Computed example of a mutant assay.
Amino acid sequence: MADVLVTGGSGYIGSWCVLALLDAGHSVRTTVRDPSREPGLREMLRRGGAAPDAPLQVVAADLTRDEGWPEAVRGCDAVLHVASPTLTSAPRSDDEMVGPARDGVLRVLRAARDAGVRRVVLTSAIGAVAYGHPDRDTPFTEDDWTNVDAGVEPYQKSKTLAERAAWDFVRTEGGGPELATVNPTGVLGPVLGPDYSPSLGLIRRMVDGSMPVALPFASGYVDVRDVADLHLRAMTDPAAAGERFIATSGRSLWVREVAAVLRARLGDRAAAAPTREMPLWAARGLSLVNSDLRTLRRLLGKNLDATSEKAQRLLGWRPRPVEDTLAETAESLLALSAADTA
């Protein structure tokens, strides 16, 4: 069993990676930006099934600062670099998101190299693969890269340039760690706390009735537990070294199809899920004045289908059916909402 560092253990994907590692018998160290978040992190992990005496150490380290990273990686065999700098509001320029994301990746890779870490698994995103391309009839694969010169949003640009910087670092000055990347589509699944990813927010708005009509775009989705499983496979399997892996479950779904699955699986509890799709022309017009839609404007009318054939073929990864994930996501969000109002 290995000693593994997970950056950003209090995040949605990070917390499930910690749980998967502990369940597999590994000793885990995880970082938080603010030490005051440790009690909340431990409560989330307890909710996810972690034992009180699990071999878990929580340390403070900030991706925007050098301090703490040598200590965080010391003695670790592998690193799952899940964390990415976040902003409290929408970035006003690309540099506000791109610089911190790229610098954070390089900061972790340098510390891992200097500590003799065997392998780093970087959590990238489908945002580094499928954006800025003309419409196409074939799914995106790991050979594709987002075209950052096509006016993509700052988040997708930051993920793309951060991942490219990681591969460049390993190729030119790595001097040790092997690298693999996991590129998830929309990540869903059970929630352990109140921090929502955009994909989780989409499901929440469907079940609580705040999305009266479905937006016209299609995306892949994947269960957070399967994303964590893929991270562990990428960490341990020799075949994963030097490879990218898209994490997605089946074909992409239009938002209207997601809503239909929720109504079919949850019945009256998802009765508020939209039954109609907003016309594309209306969605595009609304995106010019609506801040919530503005970041989605380049997705409208698009079908970002992708395939996880490579992860299944090389690593034996088997994601659960997306319909099950959608239903469990909604169940979890409803339970969390009920607990908050109790």
Rank of each mutant, 00 (worst) to 15 (best):
G189Y: 08
V187C: 01
S197M: 14
E163V: 01
P184K: 00
L192T: 04
S210Q: 10
S158A: 07
R164F: 13
E163W: 02
V187D: 03
G186D: 07
P154H: 13
L188E: 00
L202P: 00
D168P: 04
S158G: 04
S210F: 09
Q156H: 15
D149V: 10
L188W: 00
V182T: 09
V182R: 02
P194N: 15
I203K: 00
V191E: 07
V207R: 00
F169H: 09
E173S: 13
P190Y: 11
V187L: 01
S158Q: 04
A180V: 15
V152C: 07
P177E: 03
T146D: 02
S197W: 04
L200Q: 07
L192I: 13
A180W: 03
P190I: 08
G175Q: 15
S199C: 08
V187F: 01
T160D: 13
P154L: 07
A166T: 04
S197K: 07
T181V: 14
R204F: 09
P190H: 13
R171I: 07
W167S: 10
E153R: 13
Q156Y: 11
Y155R: 02
L188Q: 00
T146E: 02
P177M: 08
P154K: 14
P198H: 12
N147S: 10
F169M: 13
G201E: 07
Q156F: 13
S197G: 10
L188S: 00
P177K: 05
D195M: 15
A150T: 06
V187E: 06
T185R: 03
D149W: 12
D208K: 04
G186Q: 12
G175C: 10
G209Q: 12
K157A: 09
G186S: 12
E173D: 12
G174C: 12
E163Q: 06
L188N: 00
G189V: 03
G175P: 09
V152P: 02
N183H: 12
A166K: 01
W167Q: 03
T181C: 11
T160W: 07
Q156K: 12
V191M: 05
R164I: 07
D195L: 08
V207G: 04
G186E: 06
G186K: 00
R205P: 09
G186A: 14
D168S: 11
D195C: 11
G209S: 11
A180M: 09
V191I: 06
E173F: 13
P184E: 02
E173M: 15
Y155Q: 01
D195N: 13
T185W: 06
V182C: 03
D168K: 14
N147H: 15
P198F: 05
A165M: 12
L200T: 05
R205E: 14
V182N: 06
D168Y: 10
G174I: 06
P194H: 11
G176Q: 04
V170F: 09
D208N: 10
E153C: 09
T181M: 11
N183I: 02
R164N: 13
N147Y: 02
P190L: 14
T160F: 05
P184L: 03
R171P: 03
S210I: 08
P184C: 01
T160S: 07
E173Q: 12
T172M: 05
R204M: 13
Y155N: 01
T146K: 03
W167H: 11
A165K: 08
P190A: 15
G193V: 12
G151Q: 09
K157F: 03
P154Y: 10
E163G: 01
L179V: 11
D195S: 15
P184G: 01
A150N: 05
A162F: 03
R204C: 03
R205V: 11
